[in-house]
């Protein structure tokens, strides 16, 4: 419904069609359609016995824009959230030019199906993975934007959360490019559509809600007053209540902070683990690798804060000394 009719017919390709790039001359044989979005159609295709995902659009702009984002993702070190980009090209088909790009084919069920199949034990783990990836992305100045379960695929084994549509990824501080109402804090009246960390964390909170409400629900009064009872109503969400609540009301400043608190919920028995780190200032956490909090990193943090203290004392004494000199001169 949301698609232009012209786009649908232009990019409609029958299985078996060979797509040859104008610039790089690679050939791709279409196997089947994987799905379509507002900006184009994604096909499963084969190139030299390798299965790839090929996205086609009559709009070269949107293709270029998405390719830019995929390239930016590639620069985020260690992050495997988005698919890797393999090729960008144009295909000339009976006079018209169709832009396409080729990416890694990520296979697996989507997030909600996976949790439904394997049980809710997986929920925590997958959200920890997602938050770690988001933290990396945020550190590089990007905000994911259109975060939703349909775009989140669990590949594996070993189970690993991946994202298949990065079209909404926006530079921090700009207006969110693409969004889905249910996961958009603007729709619920809980904030602006300016891209910041908390925008993504709100969406993560809504995805957690979505796991308990597969059919979702519509806005009535909006605001946190509608959402809070929805969390409380579901027993399976009760243990995440605080985390979801803080994510929805924008109380987390970073994905790492949310990740730490989620970890604490999942692993409450460790007295000297997560909770203590939680009290450390957020900034120092940001400089340490996010995936595993080892003892070593805690020691390093302590050392850093020691250095900070020394500097503070020295500068305070210097300041008082100068004040003293100044008064003497007067």
């Amino acid at each position: 419904m949301m698609m232009n009719n012209s786009l649908k017919s232009l990019c409609k390709v029958a299985p078996g069609t060979v797509i040859k790039g104008k610039w790089h001359k690679y050939e791709y044989t279409v196997i089947k359609e994987l799905g379509f979005g507002a900006n184009g159609i994604v096909y499963l295709a084969r190139n030299a016995n390798q299965q790839v995902a090929l996205k086609m659009s009559d709009n070269a702009m949107s293709v270029t824009s998405e390719v830019n984002v995929l390239k930016a993702f590639a620069k985020v070190q260690g992050s495997a959230l988005g698919p890797s980009l393999l090729d960008v090209d144009d295909w000339e088909r009976s006079g018209t030019k169709i832009s396409f790009y080729v990416m890694e084919f990520i296979k697996g069920p989507d997030l909600l199906h996976f949790i439904h199949q394997k049980g809710s034990d997986w929920m925590g783990v997958l959200f920890l993975q997602l938050l770690a990836d988001l933290a990396d992305l945020h550190k590089n100045g990007w905000v994911f934007g259109d975060l939703k379960p349909e775009n989140l695929i669990v590949s594996g084994p070993p189970a690993r959360i991946r994202c298949i549509d990065v079209g909404g990824t926006t530079l921090k501080g700009r207006a969110i490019k693409e969004f889905t109402e249910f996961f958009d804090r603007g729709y619920w009246g809980l904030g602006s559509r300016k891209a910041d960390e908390r925008y993504d964390l709100f969406a993560v909170g809504m995805i957690m809600l979505n796991t308990a409400y597969p059919k979702r629900f519509t806005k009535t009064t909006g605001g946190i007053n509608q959402l809070l009872p929805m969390i409380k109503q579901k027993p399976e969400l009760r243990k995440f209540e605080l985390v979801i609540n803080k994510a929805l009301s924008g109380q987390y400043q970073s994905a790492e902070q949310m990740r730490m608190e989620l970890l604490h919920v999942l692993q409450p028995a460790s007295p000297n683990g997560a909770p203590r780190v939680k009290q450390a200032p957020v900034k120092t956490q940001g400089s340490v690798g996010s995936r595993t909090k080892s003892r070593q990193s805690q020691v390093r943090q302590k050392k850093k804060s020691g250095l900070f203290e020394t500097c503070l004392i020295i500068s305070a004494i210097t300041f008082i000394y100068f004040l003293y000199i100044y008064m003497q001169v007067l």
């Binding site: 610039w23 070269a60 702009m61 824009s65 830019n68 960008v88």
Partner: peptide, 18 residues
Amino acid sequence: TMEDLPPEKRGEIMEVVD
């Protein structure tokens, strides 16, 4: 136009448009 450029060059132009 932008479409006549190779895909590698389009990226930077798209950034300007963005």
